[in-house]
Amino acid sequence: MSMRVELDEPKCVASGQCVMAAPEVFDQREEDGVAIVLDDGPAPELHDGVREAAAICPAAAIHLVER
C-alpha cells in the first residue's frame, strides 16, 4: 500500500502533534512551529504513526491519500 501525505499549511496551528506521532515524517519550522513534511511518501512501517498524526492534528490539516 502506498501513502501520500498532504499538509494544508494555512490551517496548521503548529501544535507539533504530528512531530510527536511521526518524527520521521514531520518536523516544525524554527520560527513559528508550522509543520513541515519531511517525507510525503513514507515507507509502510511509518504508516501507523502518520495515521495517528493525521488523527490527532487539532487543525485537521493533514490529509492522507492511501491506495
Binding site: 494555512p10 490551517k11 496551528v13 503548529a14 507539533g16 512531530v19 510527536m20 516544525q28 524554527e30 520560527e31 513559528d32 512551529g33 508550522v34
Partner: peptide, 18 residues
C-alpha cells in the same frame, strides 16, 4: 482564523516539540 493563526504563530516558537 486568520487573525488567530497570525497571533498563534507569533507565540509558538518556544513551544516547538524539539
Amino acid at each position: 482564523a486568520p487573525e488567530h493563526t497570525r497571533l498563534r504563530r507569533m507565540v509558538n516558537a518556544p513551544f516547538l516539540v524539539k
